[in-house]
Simulated scan of single mutants.
Amino acid sequence: MRTKTLTSPRTVTTLEKLYTPAEEARKKPRSPARRQDIAAMSPAERADAPADAYMPISPEGGRLLYALTRAARPTTVVEFGTSYGLSTIHLAAAVADRCCT
């Protein structure tokens, strides 16, 4: 399987730039609301607790997402971003490379 788009210098550079702030955000201490016992929270509090959390996909997870998307060969992909756009780049690369296999 050729990964032309995912391994292109432009994509690699962009992913490296995005993974840096994603890793920094992951290391930040959690807010007090997120440290609370989830069982003690109301349903509304549980729903709001991750509002300030970013959930970026890991590099390994991104490569897996790319491979799975390539294998599925979709013509349309919908992604609901919650973070830095990392999964979007992996999905877009997979769709772009789908035509080349």
Rank of each mutant, 00 (worst) to 15 (best):
S42M: 09
G61Y: 00
E60P: 10
K4T: 11
S31T: 10
A25N: 14
R63G: 08
S87W: 01
R63V: 09
L91S: 10
F80W: 13
D48Y: 07
I89A: 05
E16V: 00
A67L: 07
Y84Q: 01
G85A: 10
D52E: 09
A25P: 08
A39C: 05
R26H: 13
A44H: 11
L15N: 00
L91P: 09
A25W: 10
A71Y: 10
S58Y: 00
Y66P: 05
M41Y: 00
I89E: 02
L64N: 12
R34T: 06
P43C: 08
M55C: 13
R34G: 05
H90F: 12
R70W: 00
A71D: 14
L65Y: 02
E23R: 13
E45D: 12
A96G: 11
Y19F: 13
V77M: 04
K27M: 05
T13M: 07
T3R: 06
P59N: 04
S87H: 04
H90Y: 15
E79V: 11
P32M: 12
V12F: 07
K27F: 03
G62P: 06
M55G: 15
R35W: 06
A25L: 12
L91H: 10
P56Y: 00
V78S: 15
L15T: 00
E24V: 15
A71K: 12
H90D: 08
A94Q: 06
P9A: 07
G61V: 00
S83I: 04
S87R: 02
T13E: 07
A49D: 10
E16P: 01
A72I: 02
A40R: 12
D97T: 02
T82F: 14
G85I: 01
R2D: 08
P29F: 01
K28M: 01
K28C: 03
R70S: 04
Q36A: 12
K28S: 02
A96S: 11
E60M: 09
R35C: 10
L86S: 02
Q36N: 11
S31E: 09
P29T: 01
G85Q: 07
I57Q: 07
V95N: 10
K4Y: 04
L64M: 14
T13Y: 04
R46S: 08
M41S: 04
P21E: 05
P50F: 01
P29V: 03
R10M: 10
V12E: 11
L64Y: 13
I38E: 06
P21K: 08
R98D: 06
Y84N: 07
A51I: 12
Y84A: 02
R35L: 14
K28D: 03
E79Y: 09
A44T: 14
L65H: 01
Y54D: 14
P9T: 04
A96F: 09
D48R: 11
A93V: 03
L68T: 12
K17R: 15
